[in-house]
């Protein structure tokens, strides 16, 4: 016999996770439109791997398999990995990445709710360190033929025709390694990978993520704190530096609409398990990720810094939480705010 309260709101972890998956679908549709169906293959591959790995780990840990498998958290991790990895990455790269995330980053730390690091970002960071070239081969915009992509994933890799550097990569390479006279404007104008505001095609995928994020906000699955703080920080700092030296620093619209910024803002930074939970903590946490992302993008060795930024802030999350505990009812100022 249970104790009060006797009735509960119809909510569940599965409900939350399915909403997150649903929110990812518009961006995936746009992704397919611009870059072909390879991403669907990767998502399926990642999902199956994740579910199998999850089931295996649950079994090993003596937990009820079906109950936990149904929570959908493994699927969310799998989808995020598929969406952050190149869609034409060989199949084993995705599989190993997902195994890293589920087995090491999630279950070895105690499973759902216990992982100190964002599993998808652990997978991304490990893979980009281990296989930097494979993780940098992205499909060219508009090249949506399925067969070469399928071959790239599962068979003979003839990549020259279908790959292209990502906008962030192209910009970084041009600015860092090419002749010292390269400027942002010059690079952006010279390459086909750049679109109107961000990366060509990617800007629309980012818009899809934004749409999904608005849906999550509307469903009250995430709060505004993290996306707002992350995007605002990225915007302010990149805008500031672009004003200071527009030849060497690219502007905020490029930062916000390329790479993983939008996906990160609404789906990765907002991971509740490994992030901060107090309102002020969320702001600090997400702002920190925004700052680190910009720093890594602008000065680091890797094209996109979100994964490392997230992992670094994951480490700091407990400390931030401890120091941002909100005051308790009655233990703050007298009186209060009028309604």
């Amino acid at each position: 016999m249970n104790n009060s309260p006797y009735f509960l709101k119809p909510a569940s972890v599965r409900f939350v996770m399915l909403r997150v998956l649903l929110a990812l679908t518009p961006a995936i549709a746009i992704y397919v439109w611009f870059f072909g169906a390879a991403i669907l293959v990767q998502i399926s591959l990642a999902s199956v791997t994740a579910l199998l790995a999850e089931a295996g780990m649950l079994k090993l840990r003596g937990k009820p398999v079906m109950m936990f498998l149904g929570d959908g958290s493994a699927l969310v991790t799998a989808w995020l990995i598929a969406l952050t990895f190149p869609p034409i990455a060989p199949w084993w790269l995705t599989v190993v990445g997902v195994l890293m995330a589920i087995v090491i980053a999630k279950h070895l730390y105690g499973g759902l709710g216990q992982n100190p690091f964002n599993p998808a970002m652990v997978a991304f960071a490990m893979m980009i360190v281990a296989y930097p070239s494979l993780m940098s081969q992205w499909p060219a915009v508009g090249f949506t033929d399925f067969l070469p992509q399928w071959n790239a994933i599962f068979g003979a890799r003839q990549l020259d025709a279908i790959t292209m550097a990502t906008p962030l990569d192209a910009l970084r390479t041009a600015l860092h390694t090419a002749d010292a006279r390269a400027t942002v404007a010059g690079v952006l104008g010279s390459s086909a990978s750049f679109g109107n505001i961000g990366g060509k095609g990617w800007e629309w995928v980012a818009a899809g993520y934004f749409l999904g994020g608005i849906y999550l906000l509307q469903q009250r699955i995430i709060t505004w704190h993290m996306p707002a703080a992350f995007l605002a920080t990225l915007l302010v700092i990149s805008g500031g530096f672009a004003l200071y030296d527009p030849t060497r620093f690219v502007g905020p619209s490029f930062h916000l609409f390329t790479g993983g910024a939008m996906l990160g803002a609404f789906f990765i930074v907002t991971d509740p398990v490994s992030g901060c939970t107090t309102p002020r903590g969320k702001l600090i946490f997400a702002a920190g990720i925004g700052l680190l992302t910009w720093v890594i993008r602008s000065f680091g060795a890797y094209p996109d810094g979100i994964a490392f930024a997230v992992l670094l802030m994951n480490i700091a999350a407990p400390l931030i939480d401890i120091n941002t505990q909100p005051p308790v009812f009655g233990h703050k100022r007298r009186g209060g705010d009028p309604q």
Partner: peptide
């Protein structure tokens, strides 16, 4: 009317409890 409570799952620190707490605590 009052179904048996479903099995307890691990806390995912979603913060719903903190949003609902009238004493402004951090229940998780």
């Amino acid at each position: 009317l009052f179904p048996a409570p479903p099995p307890e799952m691990p806390c995912i620190r979603c913060g719903e409890c903190a949003k609902a707490c009238p004493a402004e605590l951090q229940p998780f």
